[in-house]
Design a protein around this nucleic acid. Structure first.
Length: 303
DNA sequence: GGAATTTGACCTGT
DNA sequence: ACAGGTCAAATTCC
C-alpha cells in the first residue's frame, strides 16, 4: 500500500533526500580519504563528522514529522510522551532539537545491597513506541531481563554504559508489545549525565575491504560494542538487534536477526530484506537514491 | 583474558 | 503473595 506524503511534508522530504544524498556522497569519499590519510585519520575524522551531522539532520527532520495537530502527519512511529516531557515542551516552543529530548535530570536511588532498591515510581519517564528498534545514540548495557505477566515477550533492562565510570543513572526498558505489525516500547528513566564521546574512525586495514566503522568513542569505552550510535558499514561487525544504525532499518518482522549496513562493500550487503544502501564504486549512485525513495514510499510506516 | 550478556536470586512496592 | 526491578555469578563472545 502506497501512502502519499502530505503536501506540507514535501519540503521536509526534500531536505531529507538532500541530506541523505550529501551523507552518502561523503561516505563514498571515505575510502579514498582514509587511503590518503597516511594512517592518520584527521581528515577522515572531519569527513565522518560531516556525514554524521548530515544523518543527524535527517533524524531531526524525521522526529519533527510527527503525529498530531497542526496538519502534521506521522511518518515516524507513534511517539508517546508525557505532556511535561522536555521533548514535547521543546517541540511546542519551537525549540526542538535532539538535545531537547533528553530526559529530565533525576536519578534513581542508590542501592547498598543486591536487589535492595526503591522502585522508580516517581521518576519521570517517557515512552516511545516504534515498529523497529532504534539506536538512540547512547551506550547501554543490558543488566536484566524479565518475563512480564500477561505479556508474550520479555522486558529487557538497560543502564547507561557509563554508570560506574561517570555515575550516569539513565536507564531504559525495552519490550516488544506487538507481533504484527511489530511494535517495541522503549521506556526511558532518568537523565544521561555522562559526557559525550569523541568521534573516532576505525578501519580494517585491509585494502580490499572498503567498509568503515564510524563510531563514537571514548577512551573509556571497553569494546567495539560500545561504539555506536552511527555505524557506516562493518562487514564483520555484529550489530545488536536493538540497534538501528544510520537510521536504516531491518524491517523483517519475522526474523530476529538484524543487520544494518550502509555498505561501501558489495559483499557486505546481506541478502535478506533489510534495506541497504550500496555505495560501491560499481554501483550507480542514482540507483541508491532511487532505491531509498522506493523504500520510503513502500514503507512509510517505518518512518 | 576481558568485556558483554544471560539468568537466577534477592529485594521492594502494591 | 506476587510482580517488577536490580544485582551479580555464570556463561558466552570476541
Amino acid at each position: 500500500m502506497e501512502v502519499a506524503w502530505p503536501e506540507n511534508l514535501s519540503t521536509i522530504r526534500e531536505r531529507m533526500i538532500e541530506e541523505l544524498m550529501i551523507g552518502l556522497e561523503l561516505a563514498n569519499l571515505l575510502p579514498n580519504v582514509v587511503a590518503e590519510s597516511d594512517g592518520g585519520f584527521g581528515s577522515a575524522k572531519d569527513l565522518a563528522s560531516k556525514i554524521i551531522k548530515s544523518f543527524s539532520n535527517i533524524f531531526t527532520l524525521l522526529n519533527i514529522v510527527r503525529e498530531g495537530d497542526d496538519d502534521q502527519v506521522s511518518v515516524l512511529s507513534q511517539i508517546q510522551v508525557e505532556d511535561s516531557s522536555p521533548c514535547l515542551v521543546a517541540w511546542k516552543s519551537e525549540d526542538y532539537s535532539p538535545e531537547s529530548c533528553r530526559p529530565p535530570n533525576n536519578t534513581p536511588t542508590k542501592k547498598s545491597r543486591r536487589g535492595c532498591h526503591q522502585r522508580r515510581r516517581s521518576s519521570r519517564t517517557w515512552k516511545r513506541d516504534t515498529p523497529i528498534l532504534i539506536n538512540d545514540g547512547q551506550a547501554w548495557r543490558q543488566y536484566g531481563q524479565k518475563s512480564i505477566l500477561n505479556s508474550k515477550f520479555p522486558r529487557y533492562y538497560y543502564r547507561c554504559a557509563y554508570k560506574y565510570d561517570q555515575g550516569c543513572e539513565a536507564t531504559k526498558q525495552v519490550q516488544r508489545i506487538q507481533v504484527k505489525p511489530p511494535l517495541y516500547r522503549t521506556t526511558y528513566f532518568g537523565n544521561h549525565t555522562c559526557s559525550d564521546h569523541d568521534l573516532i574512525l576505525e578501519g580494517t586495514g585491509n585494502s580490499s575491504d572498503t567498509s568503515m566503522l564510524i563510531s563514537f568513542d571514548g577512551s573509556n569505552l571497553t569494546s567495539k560494542k560500545d561504539q555506536y550510535p552511527l555505524i557506516v558499514s562493518s562487514t564483520k561487525q555484529k550489530v545488536n538487534d536493538e540497534i538501528i544504525t544510520s537510521g536504516l532499518v531491518n524491517h523483517n518482522e519475522y526474523s530476529s536477526s538484524s543487520d544494518y549496513f550502509v555498505s561501501l562493500n558489495q559483499e557486505a550487503i546481506p541478502s535478506s530484506r533489510p534495506m541497504c544502501l550500496s555505495t560501491s564504486h560499481e554501483s550507480d549512485f542514482d540507483d541508491v537514491i532511487n532505491g531509498l525513495m522506493d523504500y520510503v514510499d513502500l514503507n512509510p510506516d517505518v518512518f
